[in-house]
Design a binder for these strands. Structure first.
Lengths: 340, 340
DNA sequence: ATTTGACGACCTCCGCCGGAC
DNA sequence: TGTCCGGCGGAGGTCGTCAAA
């Protein structure tokens, strides 16, 4: 392994001089600078970051802890966050975990190991307690979720998310406005203290607002956000239960796509026989047949907000804020008005 | 920040002794050990990982360098690789980069920084030179690509991939067998020394085998693998050129999905007016309308092979091998026979 | 014989001082 | 007087070796 010493020896200069060149210090003659840079190039020398971090007061690393990289909504978000963090001169470290793991425990461990200066949690539980949060000793931001079901004080945490309940209400209202009253819901889980539960609540709220009775027979749980086969099956069994619904609200775009396929295989055309609305607004779902009517999450803005919030928080560790973004309906070909 | 020195001072022992306790060395009396551990506990002392990595000869960390996490084919692969690496007792570190970046340079830097014991490159160029490869001093495996256009000796690198040229030939042959002779291709780039070029070659080979003249007018370049809008536009302009094609071979599933939408918007139904075949076999594309006819990459097997190959290579650094997997046609609703 | 201390090496940065021209 | 460069010491944790208690 070549070190700064080898470069110095080869150039016949002192280690300090090489260091000065590498760190763009002024007190080096143009000629020496070029000689050193040339040696660095030809030796393919890369400074040892462990040693570098060791002597520097802090690292420049922010970790992004993702629960389920296979979620296509996260894919784009990761890209945006990565770009902004890098642009601001920080290093982003990506970590993937299983949906069953405890993100806070892993975050605490990682922060210690890696000397992180911040953590972005992407996808997580909505019900943290102050005791749990005490594990984390570095600035952190909850991305795409907030602490709805938890007991954290608003002044003690930062989050960037959409209003999930409102988005679900908007989705259902869109269907009701078209005359639908028998509206089924396709969700992950009824009581997971997380995103599914919140959107499920929004669904029930919207029904109540329009005096539509809630029918448990119209609830289909998939147990997953991304396993197409499981979603297909859940929709199939919903159809076979014969709840006589005229529309489906799917809590995620991928679910809607699998649902449309299941409907089609059971002889129900979308939107003629059944309307479908979802939440996410993936690029993809604008290119399916029919195109999906969906509430678009402003991915670019959310990603930028995540990155900027953590950077601000690193500079001012107590300035906590919760950001909420609006979703916007993207009209598609998957819905239509019902005629009585 | 408390350091090992503080612990040593507080306990009235030498630094070496504290180190011995922390690393479970036997030559410490029970009493001293307990005293030190107690101090570590109460001071909340955590060893500095930078300093630790500086001296340690190796870590247990394998890095997975992904070029474009937004590629949905990679998402599932990452999951499989992560599971297997973790199962085998190693730590996987995920790193994302832009398509424009040089994966080898980043790999070299990372290996140095993190004291990696291995690197998995996921998605990369097919044309490395021995000089470039010399930057990498740890075992590494090329995942989903190999060195077709490069000058590496077969005994000097490991790879796990499908036979891209053959898969493309199979795709085109499927169309020819149904009577198609005017077959357009939807690809990223004609000469990128990478996956697109190889699949493009396979396309041309298949045409030649069947004495079908190659028509440059039937080539549509998207310049991207994942930007749906760009793919849609490329397809639209292909249609407007009026090449009179009866089928499209898309080199990736996502491209096919956007193409089908473009065809539909131009009044061409799939498969009645135009057949579409792709390569990838995403779960998703089994649930679109129509379902996509595609050559499935055995994701599970490829992922396992990637993980096992790097682990074997770490144990035996010179046992290089190139693995090739077969793709399998998954029939769908996007193709049909042509009647003259 | 068992336990502990002392030390140098690993690598980089940074500040400081001193020498050379 | 200013410009350029050398050299030193410290910081951080580990580990092997040697010496000492």
């Amino acid at each position: 392994m070549t070190s700064i010493k080898d470069i110095a020896l080869h150039c016949g200069v002192a280690i300090s001089t090489v260091s000065r060149v590498l760190n763009n210090h002024p007190d080096v003659s143009q000629e020496t600078r070029e000689r050193v840079l040339h040696a660095v190039e030809s030796f393919n020398y890369i400074p040892n970051t462990s040693a570098r971090n060791l002597v520097r007061s802090s690292s420049d690393t922010i970790a992004l802890l993702v629960k389920g990289v296979s979620n296509p909504f996260f894919s784009k978000l990761i890209k945006v966050i990565d770009r902004e963090i890098t642009l601001c001169g920080y290093t982003l470290e990506l970590h993937q975990m299983d949906t069953s793991e405890n993100e806070l425990r892993i975050g605490a461990q990682l922060a210690n190991e890696r000397k992180l200066i911040g953590i972005l949690f992407l996808g997580g539980r909505f019900n943290y307690s102050p005791e749990e949060m005490a594990m984390i000793h570095v600035p952190s931001v909850f991305c795409t979720y907030t602490n709805t079901f938890g007991t954290l004080d608003a002044g003690t945490y930062s989050s960037v998310a959409i209003d999930d309940k409102q988005a679900a209400r908007d989705a259902v209202n869109t269907l009701v406005a078209l005359g639908h009253r028998r509206i089924a819901i396709l969700t992950d889980n009824e009581n997971d203290n997380s995103i599914s539960e919140l959107r499920f609540q929004g669904y029930k709220d919207a029904l109540r607002e329009h005096d539509i009775p809630f029918d448990p027979n119209l609830v289909a749980c998939t147990g997953t956000f991304s396993d197409m086969k499981a979603i297909y099956k859940a929709t199939s069994s919903l159809i076979q239960r014969g709840g006589n619904f005229t529309a489906i609200f799917a809590i995620a775009d991928l679910m809607a796509i699998a649902a449309i396929k299941a409907l089609s295989d059971h002889g129900k055309r979308v939107p003629q026989d059944c309307s479908v609305v979802a939440i996410d607004g993936l690029d993809l779902s604008e290119y399916t047949l029919p195109t999906l009517t969906t509430l678009v999450q402003p991915t670019e803005e959310i990603g930028l907000a995540c990155a900027r919030t953590i950077i601000e928080l690193i500079k001012h560790p107590d300035k906590h804020r919760q950001y909420t973004f609006e979703t916007v309906l993207r009209p598609g070909g998957s819905i239509r008005a019902i005629q009585e």
